[in-house]
Design a binder for these strands. Structure first.
Length: 483
RNA sequence: GCCAAGGUGGCAGAAUGGCAAAUGCGACGGACUGCAGAUCCGUUUCCUGGGGGUUCGAUUCCCUCCCUUGGCUCCA
């Protein structure tokens, strides 16, 4: 049995109940990178958004096939490769590897397949040929164009009317096109560019065609969810609809269009062309993958999100620390005695809440993936744990595990509270820290607070934070977000 | 100009045709502490862009204006 959920669909502009084409299968395609340079924080946001979508659907019983394409050849890659004296395909591979490393760090690993555009040249040629045969495309001197006027539905996703568009404002209009709105399906090779043989002469794919050739091959003529950033709505996704529905004669191409909001910096979209870019890797290094993930998920996925290291990210760091604190108390307590440790049982009403909260969290997320609301509920749970903490002393291991259920939900679905958050110091190291703590305790007991503070300060410089709790002193890594 | 999405407290960000609007951060006061931190309690009670309208009642529905962001063939 799969869980029902609702999702905002950009095409119908409403939150709709999700109905898979073939339950419990779900085909999910998300527009991925053109890796001509390092990925930035904005790319990371979209990746995490759809990572949570995939995680949630899998938890809810759907069998998700998540495909994220890689545009490993386009004009920018060719230009950049030329500027750097590198092969564009090799350049793409290089930056793609960086992307995968960032995804690993962010624990965003739900993608099943990253197809590269140039691995699907036969499928692309096949689809372009079909479009020509069906009268949607025409050939001019080795170039192939899509004739937009042949596809009456063009504009249905973005609400654009052709006659109101301003063509040629950013680029010269290609004089070979029959109409300014026509777009390139296949580009005739220029000297020195990577090229593949085709019925129209050597060349390479246009920007939009790889997506539909790949999805037709991997997910079928029609599939469930297509995701990407809102900036891709027009013309890219509009072109995808025109290509796929034109080629297959079936519509709709997808049942649900999901668009993630832009990450902004100084009130503008983060983009290389604007020059306000912070690389994803730099963000991860600076704030840590957990804080960054939290920052992304602490906002509505469709809304713009402002990136400000001194403000929004600092806030995220603080907020995440207080979200993690009760979880960490539980975890430490559990590590102390282990799962099987005997002790008191939870008051029934608390056990009940703990057991039911994950379901409530599922329900919250099932309403258009409101991660921020789920996080609010987790805060509520954390506060409950904190309030009850003194009364919960001496709990059994099983009781502690029960209290942790909402956090396990968050790890599974939101990717927060991963185990790597905890200090995994070698035993010898812990022993040394413990020794310092004991030395400090003796100093404190004889009233030598200067010495005690000196020890605490030294440990802090080594990245270790001490906290006195009653007669006990605990330590943790500063990096974990508390200090 | 056109299309789309938005405008809620110091900030981030929910919700709802009706108890002065969740949650978090920050701030302030208190408890605890040798100090700090963590935690707890209290305060941050005159916050829904402007103007109309519908309604017993609107932040929520309608109209209009203003503003912001994205897009109008490079974009996640």
């Amino acid at each position: 049995m799969v869980r029902a959920f609702r999702v905002y669909d950009t095409l119908s502009r409403e939150v709709r109940a999700f109905v898979p084409r073939v339950s419990p299968r779900v085909g999910l395609f998300v527009c991925g990178l053109t890796p001509y340079a390092e990925a930035h924080i904005g790319h990371g946001r979209t990746a995490v958004t759809f990572d949570v979508v995939a995680r949630a659907l899998r938890r809810w019983g759907y069998h998700v096939f998540y495909v994220q394409n890689v545009t490993n050849l386009d004009d920018r890659l060719i230009d950049r490769g030329r500027a750097e004296g590198r092969d564009p395909l090799e350049l793409a591979e290089f930056h793609f590897q960086g992307w995968i490393r960032s995804m690993d760090q962010l624990d965003a690993r739900s993608v099943n397949l990253y197809p590269f555009a140039t691995d699907y040249i036969p499928e692309i040629i096949d689809q372009v040929s079909t479009l020509i045969d069906r009268g949607f495309a025409y050939v001019v001197d080795g170039d192939v164009y899509y004739e937009v006027s042949k596809f009456p539905d063009y504009g249905k996703l973005s609400g654009q009317k052709l006659e109101a568009l301003r063509f040629g404002t950013r680029e010269e209009i290609d004089p070979k096109k029959r109409a300014p709105e026509d777009f390139s399906l296949w580009k005739a090779a220029k000297p020195g560019e990577p090229a593949w043989p085709s019925p129209w002469g050597p060349g390479r794919p246009g920007w939009h065609i790889e997506d539909t050739a790949i999805t037709a091959h991997l997910l079928g003529d029609q599939y469930d969810i297509h995701g990407g950033g809102t900036d891709l709505k027009f013309p890219h996704h509009e072109a995808e609809i025109a290509q796929a529905e034109g080629a297959s004669g079936k519509k709709p191409l997808v049942n649900y269009w999901m668009h993630g909001g832009m990450l902004q910096m100084h009130g503008e979209k983060m983009a290389k062309s604007v020059g306000n870019v912070v690389s994803l890797d730099a963000g991860i290094r600076k704030f840590g993958p957990d804080v960054l993930r939290f920052y992304y998920l602490n906002a509505q996925y469709r809304s713009p999100l402002n990136y400000d290291e001194g403000k929004s990210l600092e806030e995220a760091r603080e907020s995440y620390a207080s979200l993690v604190a009760p979880y960490r108390r539980l975890r430490e307590e559990l590590l102390r005695g282990g799962l099987t440790r005997p002790g008191r049982e939870l008051p029934p009403e608390i056990a009940k809440t703990a057991t039911e909260l994950p379901t409530r969290l599922d329900e919250i997320l099932a309403e258009d993936f409101q991660t921020r609301e789920a996080i609010a509920a987790l805060y509520g749970w954390g506060r409950m744990i904190n309030e009850w903490w003194s009364k919960l002393e001496g709990l059994s291991g099983a009781s502690l595990v029960t209290l942790g259920a909402p956090y396990r939900w968050a790890t599974e679905v939101l990717g927060l509270f991963p185990e790597r958050t905890g200090a995994k110091a070698p035993a010898e190291f812990s022993t040394l820290v413990q020794l310092a703590i004991e030395t400090r305790a003796r100093a404190r007991s004889r009233g030598d607070f200067a010495e005690a503070d000196r020890i605490r300060q030294s440990l802090l410089q080594a990245g270790i934070v001490l906290e006195d709790q009653g007669s006990e002193t605990r330590w943790q890594w500063k990096r974990d977000g508390v200090a």
